[in-house]
């Protein structure tokens, strides 16, 4: 199974490649007032407005550095209600893929106090990598704020 790797600070994290729609260079988002700081704004993807979440800011409070290796990762997944959601994440060092068996990942044992999007971890020659669950990145309030039901627009 293929995973897309990226970094938050010095630590490595992975996303399920099956959920990744596309990897893009760092883009300027359209700012939307009234949203939390971790939501940088909206991106235009083939005429569709996709919310851009700064994973680095969400996890550590520090914005993603404006490097060439910092990328926007477009993910598509199904939420609890079975609806498909598309979300843009910006992260540092999103330049490689890792081929691993999902069974290699084991629970950390400290999930109770950590954010919901952090999953199990696996070890390789460079150290530990942690699985980030894209579907758990948004809180229900944020999800309600970003993905309103159809027919709501004025």
């Amino acid at each position: 199974m293929l995973f897309l790797s990226f970094r938050i600070g010095a630590d490595r994290y992975v996303l399920d490649a099956a959920q990744v729609e596309r990897v893009l260079p760092l883009l300027e988002a359209k700012a939307v007032p009234g949203l939390p700081p971790a939501v940088l704004g909206l991106l235009d993807y083939h005429g569709r407005a996709v919310p851009l979440i700064d994973v680095c800011l969400l996890a550590t409070g520090r914005p993603t550095a404006g490097m060439m290796s910092s990328r926007v990762i477009l993910v598509r997944y199904a939420d609890e209600a079975g609806r498909t959601e598309t979300l843009a994440l910006c992260a540092e060092q999103a330049t490689g893929t890792i081929e691993r068996d999902p069974a290699d990942f084991v629970a950390t044992g400290v999930e109770a106090g950590t954010p919901a999007y952090l999953g199990p971890v696996a070890a390789d020659e460079e150290g530990l990598v942690q699985w980030v669950r894209a579907s758990a990145l948004l809180t229900p309030e944020l999800r309600a704020m970003l993905f309103q039901p159809a027919g709501a627009p004025p």
Binding site: L2, A17, A18, V20, R22, L24, P25, M68, T95, T97
Partner: peptide, 21 residues
Amino acid sequence: ITKVADQTNILSLNAAIEAEK
């Protein structure tokens, strides 16, 4: 050249993801 290499990297990433899919 660096920009081209970067684009190539993105391209290859996307290609790998598509191939996985």
